[in-house]
């Protein structure tokens, strides 16, 4: 079936079987491999994308459900010049990246939170990340990076 939606601010139309997940649509049909498959059952958050402003696990969304929606993936998150944005830069500065497999999901989850609020407490940041598993970092430097970005964006606005 034909699925039409906005992907990373660009309209897109793609023919896909009705039973594929949004994650597979992105990875196998659109060649966007930033979202990762860690569990396929909605537990790890490695497949996180932003759908109509909300953080979702793309492994739990059927591709046809994306019809008419606005989707932002990690490939749509960057500075205007294509380099890292402030959040991504802070992930690097604060040492928030280890193996990196969860990191696209973490960046997406961080952006989804910062779209809602620029004054999150560390506890609120942790709650916002609770659906994103990381086995390497113990989360602390990821929280540091998101917190620092919130402060910077607050000051800039």
């Amino acid at each position: 079936m034909l699925i039409e939606f906005t992907l990373n601010y660009q309209p897109i139309a793609i023919e896909a079987p009705p039973d594929v997940t949004l994650l597979h649509l992105l990875r196998d049909h659109l060649n966007l491999t930033g979202a990762k498959e860690g569990c396929s059952v909605g537990e790890c958050g490695a497949c996180s994308v932003i759908m109509d402003g909300r953080l979702v696990n793309s492994c739990l969304v059927l591709a046809p459900q994306a019809h008419g929606s606005e989707i932002i993936t990690i490939e749509g998150i960057h500075a205007p010049d294509g380099g890292p944005n402030d959040l991504q830069e802070n992930f690097i500065t604060y040492g928030a990246v280890q193996c990196g497999i969860c990191i696209p999901g973490m960046v997406v989850a961080g952006e989804a939170l910062l779209m809602r609020t620029l004054t999150p407490t560390r506890t609120e940041i942790r709650t916002a990340l609770a659906g994103n598993l990381c086995r390497c970092t113990g989360y602390q430097q990821i929280v540091d990076a998101i917190e620092a970005t919130a402060v910077q964006r607050r000051q800039a606005s």
């Binding site: 990875r27 490939e75 991504q88 690097i92 990246v97 990191i103």
Partner: peptide
């Protein structure tokens, strides 16, 4: 210091085996 492989990872560009 900056981790040498952090940039490709935060941009979602690192190609793991499944990618």
């Amino acid at each position: 210091a900056r981790r040498v492989d952090a940039l490709e990872k935060v941009m979602g560009k690192a190609k793991y085996i499944a990618d």
